[in-house]
Design a protein around this nucleic acid. Structure first.
Lengths: 227, 227
DNA sequence: TTAATAGTGTCTCTCAGACACTATTGG
DNA sequence: CCAATAGTGTCTGAGAGACACTATTAA
């Protein structure tokens, strides 16, 4: 091993985060306005350099980027994929470790300048290869929604089963059978009713509030192939 | 943007490849003996620095590492996950983009010094976080084998359905129903019979050889969540 | 009482697995 | 013919979806 050999491994190393949430049942992504070159002023996925001095790993980098560039705390975060090459960033050969974040809309900062929420199908042009990263994130969420309770992360502490079903239908883009849906959720065994109830709309029977069982809260992050 | 900001993104950037194959029905991994520090002489996953000057992307880096460190060409390669942090490599904060390769045993170089094939359950101690990377690769192959034809990459050009079923059973660790298995393979529509046949064992009816339909050969790499 | 949605019991149809049968080879 | 494995037709039980019914609220 020598200096020049060591230098071979030195490329730009960044994280990019696809923050997804539901706005009136529409899957939407958080974009931030870039403060610096390249693409200063352009709307893009929140991203930034890895800070080797302060980050425990790339997951921590992603969490820090979310906090500092978008004011988002406590999102569910999962590694997505890593995008690389000489062309994706004009500064040179780069590595972008991408993360996917799911968060309820209420947890997003309201009216933060330089932050906006747009439907994933209406982002317009995105810089770098962010369109590709976004596409991968949406595909991943759709895919995992078919066999896991991933979408519960779009909610806060509690939610009703009809609400949850609407979210699944919105993500998968097809209506679901009520009986089958509830049977599946029951089999997964991840949810439990909370004593309180829900009224909201009003002129009908209120729905039972549910929450994720504590023992499953972290397991969700580890399950399947998200790392 | 300034120089010190740029330097923040500069960490060690490597690729590690988990090469899996089947040896008499046992899922096994390729280890190579490290030539340099750290861990010189120790058996480890083939890995190396990204060479920004020559690699088109990290996938190309992985293919080059496979060729130069293990003499392996033409393996099926799929990005696995990226492992990061200050502790995994004694040289400092590092990023390891890991890839999973599936290859038939016949395509491996025979008797190459500094290369060995061991069952994934009997690797002994591995340097860096290679044990964790291996574990992720095995979990991924098991998981994808449940709903895709991924295991066809353990074969060369053609194979029989009984052979393929044995491989699935070996990977999943459970016997499969013959009728259901063949029905599933038929539904996936990825295989086609080749005019030739197979006799081998001999004293029984020969099995029809099959191959992957050309139009699915590359699609396999793109399907699902492998990037 | 009515309208509206929550939640459940049950029937049916589909599909995966079990079983048994036929097919084809070597000896 | 026999042994051994390849390959297929069919039955059955479990599970998903369709439907209809009950439950509970506001107006």
């Amino acid at each position: 091993m020598n200096q020049s050999e060591t230098a071979l491994g030195q490329v730009l190393t960044t994280v990019d985060v696809v923050v997804l949430t539901l706005v009136d049942g529409v899957l939407s992504v958080v974009l931030v306005q870039r403060e610096r070159a390249p693409f200063a002023g352009v709307w893009a996925l929140p991203g930034g350099y890895i800070h080797a001095q302060e980050d425990a790993d790339a997951y921590a980098s992603a969490a820090r980027v979310l906090r500092s560039k978008a004011g988002i705390e406590d999102a569910y975060l999962e590694q997505l994929a890593t995008f690389t090459g000489p062309a994706r960033d004009p500064r040179g050969w780069s590595v972008a470790i991408s993360y996917c974040a799911l968060i309820p809309q209420q947890k997003l900062p309201t009216h933060r300048p330089g932050l906006k929420l747009v439907p994933v199908t209406a982002t317009g042009q995105l810089p770098f290869d962010h369109a590709q990263i976004l596409q991968a994130a949406v595909a991943r969420v759709r895919s995992k929604s078919q066999y896991s309770s991933l979408p519960v992360h779009f909610f806060g502490e509690s939610f009703t089963l009809p609400q949850l079903q609407q979210v699944y239908e919105s993500i998968l883009g097809e209506p679901l059978n009520k009986v089958s849906f509830r049977r599946k959720m029951d089999e997964l065994g991840m949810l439990e009713p909370v004593p309180g109830e829900m009224q909201a709309g009003g002129a009908h029977r209120p729905a039972q509030l549910h929450r994720v069982r504590p023992e499953f809260k972290q397991q969700l992050a580890l399950s399947a192939r998200g790392l």
